[in-house]
Amino acid sequence: MSYFSSSIGRKQIVGICGLGLSLFVLTHMLGNLLVFLGPQAYNEYGHALTSNKLIYIAEAGLLAILIGHVIYTVLLTIRNKNARPKKYAVTPAGEKKTNFAAKTMIYQGVVILVFIIHHLLTFKFGEEYEVQYGEVIMRDLYRLMVEVFSQPIYVVWYVIAVIILWTHLGHGFSSSFKSLGFNHPKYVKKIDTAGCIYAAVVCLGFIAQPLYMFMNN
């Protein structure tokens, strides 16, 4: 049997891609913390990233793991939905009930995907303002952020989407390790705790940014 057509192989690919995306969201959040230092630091960071030719390789890699994560998840979800054509009439409520976040990963993923597309259209492919620092003319992304996050509706949507990302990472991080075979009484609790802390740090870092922009501008 081919690894790529097996349920476990596909799950492991989803996990590996998911961990790659988790690493990306952490670096994205950390880099964007520069908004707290003001427009120049933030715009120069953005310029340094986009003017480096390696960005194309990084973006292609990121797109590839996002597509891998989505496609294999869709294939697994189709399989999973077909595995129980007739649903139960009663949902378990006692000790045998399951965690809500774990049960709704696919729906969280759909919201996050819509958010990513909207986020890219708003920022990466959004209005191109320019600013000059010394000799260098660069994109004024800070101005765009101020404009976007002055709209309460966008701030609310952003915060809701990041809270959903929080639940997605909270289960996804530790679940990826388990799919890859890392579940042992010696360290499984540490992985679960690391996943909770990771999700909280990434998402609180993201949420702080639009709230700061909204309150200060």
């Binding site: 349920s7 476990i8 799950k11 077909n82 595995a83 399951t98 774990a102 990963m105 799919s179």
Partner: peptide, 9 residues
């Protein structure tokens, strides 16, 4: 035709 594991426990 069983589904895949999603580690819900």
């Amino acid at each position: 035709a069983f589904g895949a594991c999603t580690n819900t426990g």
